[in-house]
């Protein structure tokens, strides 16, 4: 499972309130979440996420269990998120909706091309391939299916 995109750098401890504010949650219209993603951090950021690989500091996605945070990123066009660590509920949510995550501590330069391979377990930020921890086989299977909904649809 390979992918590549343009780096968008973010700090540590990005919480799910900052990804998508509570005031936008009461809807089933996913485009609303994409439209308001990161609004309280930087209102212009959301429009810059198509084809982006977010590279953040530790503890990305902490706070609320709102799956809308992971969905907002995916709907806005984020290809993957790279961080030294993720909050555990966000981690599960992202995999479940088919948004790849890579646990790695990498230096980020905005706009630089980032390539990765989830199955092989490497990331390349422009300085050559670097080994990263691989997702569990179960999580890879969910991602390959396109998320947990599709995974169970097939499995039933």
């Amino acid at each position: 499972m390979q992918g590549k995109g343009r780096a968008v750098c973010l700090p540590a401890d990005i919480d799910t309130d900052i990804i998508i504010a509570g005031r936008y949650l009461r809807t089933k219209d996913r485009s609303i979440w994409a439209e308001h993603v990161f609004e309280d951090l930087d209102p212009s950021l959301g429009k810059n996420l198509k084809g982006a690989v977010i590279v953040a500091g530790k503890n990305f996605g902490c706070g609320s269990s709102r799956e809308q945070a992971a969905i907002a990123l995916k709907e806005a066009g984020v290809i993957a998120v790279v961080a030294p660590s993720f909050a555990r509920i966000f981690f599960r949510n992202a995999i479940n909706i088919g948004l790849p995550l890579i646990e790695a501590d990498v230096t980020c330069t905005n706009g630089r091309q980032i390539a990765f391979d989830l199955s092989a377990g490497w990331i390349d930020t422009g300085t050559g391939k670097r080994k990263v921890a691989r997702l569990s086989l179960h999580m890879l299977a969910i991602l390959r299916a396109g998320g947990l909904v599709a995974y169970w649809k097939v499995k039933q």
């Binding site: 269990s65 709102r66 799956e67 992971a70 509920i89 599960r92 949510n93 479940n96 909706i97 998320g147 947990l148 909904v149 169970w152």
Partner: peptide, 10 residues
């Protein structure tokens, strides 16, 4: 422990 919506659906 807590999970998200799709985990709960499963």
């Amino acid at each position: 422990t807590g999970v998200g919506a799709t985990d709960m659906a499963a």
